[in-house]
Structures are given as C-alpha cells and as structure tokens.
C-alpha cells in the first residue's frame, strides 16, 4: 500500500509526542485549568461578599476584617431574603407541576400509537426549541391583561411553558429504555393501564424521574428572562432578579451584590454537588432519541 511513508523512527517520534500529551500530568493539568476557570469567578464573588466597603474600594485581594455586613445589607436592609423565599416557592411549584404533567405525557409518547402521534411529538420538540425571547413580548401583555404582573403565579406559568416540553422529551427517552414486556406482564397479571404505569413502570423509571426533577428545579432556579419581565417587586421577584437590580444603582454596592449572588448560587452548587450524576444523566437523556 502506498500509505504515508513512515520510517519507524518518524513513527516513534510522533507517538512520543502523543504519549506526552496523553500522560497523566497533561490530563490533570487540563482539568486543573478547567476547574480554575470555572471556579475562580465564584471564589472571587465569595471573597468580595466578606469584604467591607472600604476593602472593595482599596482593591485588596483578600477581605481585610472579613465581615457579614454585606449579607445584612443585601438580605435584611434591602429585604432580599424575601426574594430567596420567592425563588424557593416558584422553583418548587414549577417543578411539581411540570413533573406531574410531563411524566405521564412522556410515557404516552414512549408506548402508544395514536393519530398524528409523530406530528404531536414534533410539536413538543418545537415548543422546546422555540426561542423564549420570542414569547416575552406577548407574554408580558397577557400577564398584564390578566393581572398577573408582579405575581409568583405569572412566573410559574412561564416556567411551565419553558420546561414542560423538555421534561416530556426527557421522560419519553427514559421510558423508551424500559422494555414494553414489563407493561404487558403487568397487564396479564390484571393491572389496569394506569396501574401498570403507576406501580410497575414508574418505579423502574424513578432514577430518570429524579434526574428530570433536579434538572427542572435547577432550570427554574436559574431562569432570568421571564422572572425579570413578570416581576421586579419584593412580593414575587426571584433572587437572580434581585441580584441584578444592584446594577441599576448609582454607586453599585459590589460587596452586597456579591453577597446576593452567593446566596443565589448556594442552592445551585449544593444540588450539583449532591446530584451530579443525575444531572449528567438528565442532560444527556434530553438529547438521545
């Protein structure tokens, strides 16, 4: 064969370069740099949040006289603790509604044929891929018309639009991995179709259900566009929106903004730390057919 003319020496030299690139040191160096890039902005926020206003102006790296005063200014003086409560309520309610609606729907798409089933499924996919910014303008008008401006309900409804199609899709993918023989066995044993779903198939899909739940909670927690459009008042705004509001101040209180940011990040970080595996399953489960 007239392949590339390699001498053994050339081959070894090339391979040696790759052996270096593949060595443990390079692998860990790459990962270390990645972790540094990912984590350092958050560390910087954390350091800033413990600083006095003077330390912020003095541009010190570490907080001199570390203090929790910035947290007090953000959470108590500005009352943003209420935004934290709103965020928890909104993300939880959105997650519950989306999972209750989306799980059975995903099951139907994984099991049953019905008229226009593929068209309906493509419609669900399309709603997921539709850019949310496109709905913001009409949604703002609808919310205003129905008196839902500055309400938690208005934000929850937006979250249902945003995450329900995703959950239907993810749950369908999880259900597909479960053999239909399981449903059939349950039916032969005298289960109704609902019982077969509830008592036989659902327990098997539980890890996938957990992944969907965690993903929906995180997505609702980090959402900004609709939360910001619907509400900027303390009765209903979320903590990511509250943190952003510092930007509008004449002289930004950077330490207090960092404190609010840290408060908004802590739940995200905790969920990632405890449920990393489920998140990976959820993120990749939302992609495969």
């Amino acid at each position: 064969m007239a392949g590339p003319e390699f001498t053994v020496e050339q081959y070894r030299r090339r391979q040696r370069l790759w052996d270096v690139l593949e060595s443990r040191y390079v692998v860990h160096l790459v990962l270390f740099l990645a972790v540094f890039f990912i984590v350092s902005p958050l560390i910087w926020q954390l350091l800033t949040s413990f600083k006095t206003s003077q330390a912020v102006l003095d541009l010190t790296y570490l907080p001199v006289d570390p203090t929790l005063a910035a947290y007090e200014r953000a959470l108590i003086d500005r009352g943003f603790w209420r935004a934290v409560v709103n965020s928890v309520l909104i993300a939880s309610a959105s997650t519950v509604i989306v999972m209750i609606l989306g799980t059975p729907a995903g099951y139907v798409f994984s099991r049953f044929r019905f008229p226009f089933d593929n068209a309906v499924f493509v419609f669900v996919l399309f709603t997921r891929l539709f850019p949310p910014i496109g709905l913001v303008t009409p949604y703002y008008r609808i919310v205003t018309t129905f008196g839902l401006l500055n309400t938690k309900t208005g934000i929850v409804i937006a979250n249902v639009y945003l995450w329900l199609p995703l959950v239907i899709y993810i749950m369908r993918n999880f259900f597909i991995t479960i053999p239909q023989a399981l449903d059939e066995a349950a039916r032969v044993d005298g289960c109704t179709k609902v019982q077969a779903f509830r008592y036989v198939v659902f327990p098997v899909v539980l890890p996938g259900f957990a992944a969907g739940t965690i993903l929906t909670f995180l997505y609702s927690w980090r959402e900004f566009l609709f939360a910001f459009t619907v509400s900027t008042d303390l009765n209903s705004m979320t903590i990511p929106v509250a943190t952003f509001l510092f930007v509008g101040d004449a002289g930004i209180d950077w330490a207090a903004m960092a404190a609010a940011a840290i408060v908004a990040v802590i739940p995200s970080a905790l969920v990632v730390i405890f449920f990393q595996r489920y998140i990976v399953v959820g993120l990749t489960g939302g992609l495969k057919g």
Binding site: I38, W221, P240, M257
Partner: peptide
Amino acid sequence: TLILISWAVPLSIVGVT
C-alpha cells in the same frame, strides 16, 4: 462536579459576576 457548577449558576449571576 466542580466543572458542572458554572452551568447551574443563575444566568444573571453569571452576568453580574
């Protein structure tokens, strides 16, 4: 886990950071 954290950070917090 460490690398996933930035994905979970609320989007406006990414911006202000």
